[in-house]
Design a protein around this nucleic acid. Structure first.
Lengths: 180, 180
DNA sequence: ATAACCATGTAAATGGTTACATGATTAG
DNA sequence: CTAATCATGTAACCATTTACATGGTTAT
């Protein structure tokens, strides 16, 4: 599964432009489990167009640049379903914030504090984003997944708040006898 | 921050071979926030060696293949600290399981159930892994990060268990008027 | 016997990020 | 007047994954 499939998925919700799809990853319903930038979305849409998995209509707008709105074709939906029914790969996570907290004793205390607070904000903002989604009259999967995101973000924010002293109390240059 | 830095971090805990570093990502203390395979670890170690950020000693073993044990140099530790004191990039997550649950109404109900249960197992196993880590007499950052991982995994497993009916009740071919 | 574990590595391919390129409109 | 939003795209670069290559030992 790659960004092409995620674009097909996005279009299964409704017709959209590349710009609009990007927002689904940034602050929309995909924000907590996948991400993609323009540099991968636009090429993906062009490949999908070549393969007739989507169609494209250029729409002129008043006082806005024209936009290209993409729609899923029958072949596109078939392809998407087939991909969705495969065995999922393991989750891939990569958190530099956590790496830094893990090696907190190698950080300046100001940096350590900065990391921690930004990370709390990150989870709080994520919760707001998910709360603001309008999922009325949508399939249960979407509600379920939003709920999972909220549960995880809330648990993370709560843990960080409640245990922050543990991290901040690490002495900067204490020797733990590692690498001995 | 890339795998080179994570290898330096791993070696700041203690001398290790590429094989042993891999285990730190797989089932060790890094498992819930970063991952790497042999194909990235071995080349990373060789680059670090070229740059004198690590040294290498080949150790013969009885009835085991010889292993190359790497150690952090002073330059390596300096490099690691500098990297750790940068501004962290945003978290990157990529979960195919969640994608599939999000589009649950496009899945066969057996696949939907399979995804859900495997995902619960994944979090349970993750908890076991983190519980089994021996972090006695280690810097607080490592305890703190393990605790965060546990909090998040437990919250995820709990949510999935308690709300599974919401996901499983999605009708396979119901029409939600999307893409209209 | 068979699978899992120990142990290292490379080459090719994939896939994604970053920087670049452009430009009008609107809100503060 | 400045920043943000709307809107699309490419090219070069980078990092990582996958498949390949090898082979002995230990536990079931």
């Amino acid at each position: 599964m790659d960004i092409k499939s995620l674009c097909l998925g996005a279009l299964s919700i409704g017709d959209a432009s590349g710009y609009e799809i990007k927002k689904m990853f940034e602050e929309g319903p995909f924000s907590h489990f996948y991400d993609a930038g323009y540099g991968s979305i636009y090429p993906a849409l062009n490949k999908l167009l070549e393969d007739d998995l989507v169609t494209c209509t250029e729409i002129e707008q008043e006082s806005r640049p024209a936009k290209k709105v993409y729609s899923l074709t029958d072949a596109g939906l078939t392809y998407l379903k087939a991909d969705l029914n495969q065995k999922p790969a393991r989750d891939k996570t990569r958190s530099e914030s956590i790496v830094m907290m893990f090696f907190g004793h190698l950080l300046s205390s100001s940096h350590r504090e900065e990391i921690l607070h930004s990370y709390i904000d990150y989870f709080r903002d994520g919760c707001t984003c998910l709360d603001d989604l309008d999922l009325s009259n949508q399939p249960n999967g979407r509600l379920f997944v939003r709920g999972l995101g909220l549960a995880v973000y809330e648990a993370a924010a709560k843990y960080l708040e409640e245990n922050k002293d543990l991290l901040l109390s690490d002495d900067e240059e204490r020797d733990f006898g590692d690498a001995a």
